[in-house]
Simulated scan of single mutants.
Amino acid sequence: MRKQRIIALLTDFGLKESSVAAMKGTILSICPKAQIVDISHEIPLFDVRHGAFVLASAATHFPRGTIFVGVVDPGVGTERRGIVVETERFLAVGPDNGLFSFFMDRERVKNVYEIKNKELMLEQKTHTFHGLTIFSPVAAHLANGVEPGLVGPKINNYIHWSIPRSIIKESAIFGEIIHIDQFGNGITNVTKKDLRKIKVNYDSYIKIKIDGKKVSAPFKRSYGFSKTGDYICVIGSYDFLEIAVNQGNAAKKLSLKIGNKIRIKKAN
C-alpha cells in the first residue's frame, strides 16, 4: 500500500472563483489518497517574489516527501517552461519563473526537470490555466509514484535568484527589505548571527537607517515587549530581523518597499 502523499498548494488565485477547487478536484481524480494542504491562495497578484518567500518559509515545516505546487504565473501560456524540482526531501511543481528560488536555496537540489510528458497532463486545452491542466495532474501522478525523471528532460538553465546577503562593515550591517508581511512588518535579510557580530543582543537598542529615514528601536524576543504604537525589532518566524510596530504597521509608517536599503548599528 503506497503511503499517503501530501500535496501543498500555493497560488495567487484567491478563493472567490473556482480555480483552487478545480485544481484540488483534478488532483483527487488522479490520486484519491492525496492529502491536500493549502499554504496560501492570497499571494499578491502576479508577485512571484512574494510567493517564493512564503513558499520557502512554509516548506521548511513540512514532512519529507511533500509535493509542493506553486502557481504564481504571470507568464502562463507563453514560452516559459513548467518544471519539477527534486530535492533531497521534497518535490516542487510549477512555472520556471523563479518561484522556487528561495525554496531551492534552503533545500539540497538534486535535479530540475522540464515538464514535457503529455501523458501526465490533462487532455483539456487551455493556455491560461496551467495550474489545472499541467501542474496539478503532474503533482498527482508524482504522488501516485511516477518517478520525477519521467516528466521530461533534466535542465540546468532554469530561472533562479537568491536572497541578497547582508554585509558587515565597521560595526554596521548593510542589508535590505526582502519581504513585507500582512501585518506591515518589514522583513530584512539580516540574521541573528549578523546582529551578534555587532554585539546586538536581546534588550539592546539598535539604530536603523532606511533610505534616509532613521529609527531607534529595541531588539526583543517578541512584539509585545514594546508599547502599542512603538517600533520594535524581533527575529520573526522567517528567521530574519523584522522591523515592526507593536499592533501597528511599520511598512505604512516608514513607507517601506521591497528592496529598501537599510543600515543597522548598535545604539551607544
Results as ranks from 00 to 15, higher is better:
K220P: 09
S222L: 09
K193M: 00
G229E: 04
G145E: 08
S216M: 06
G236H: 03
D194I: 02
I232D: 08
S222Q: 14
I173Q: 00
H160T: 03
A140T: 12
I243K: 11
T228Y: 10
Y205T: 05
N157L: 11
I177D: 02
N260A: 10
I168S: 04
G184H: 01
V190E: 02
L132Q: 14
C233D: 04
N260Q: 11
S216W: 02
N157S: 15
K197P: 00
T191Q: 09
N156V: 10
I198L: 05
K199F: 06
T128H: 12
E147H: 11
L254I: 07
T191N: 05
Q247P: 05
T191Y: 08
I163R: 01
G259S: 15
Q247L: 15
A251Y: 02
S222G: 11
D194W: 03
S136L: 03
Q182C: 06
L241P: 00
I235G: 12
E176K: 02
I206A: 04
K197H: 02
Q182G: 12
A140L: 07
V151E: 04
V200A: 06
S162Y: 05
K252D: 13
G149T: 03
A172I: 04
K199H: 15
D203F: 12
P153N: 14
K227T: 12
Y205F: 15
P218S: 07
I177N: 00
H160M: 13
V245R: 10
K199C: 05
V138H: 03
Y205V: 00
Y202F: 11
T133I: 12
K193Y: 05
H130Q: 11
D211V: 14
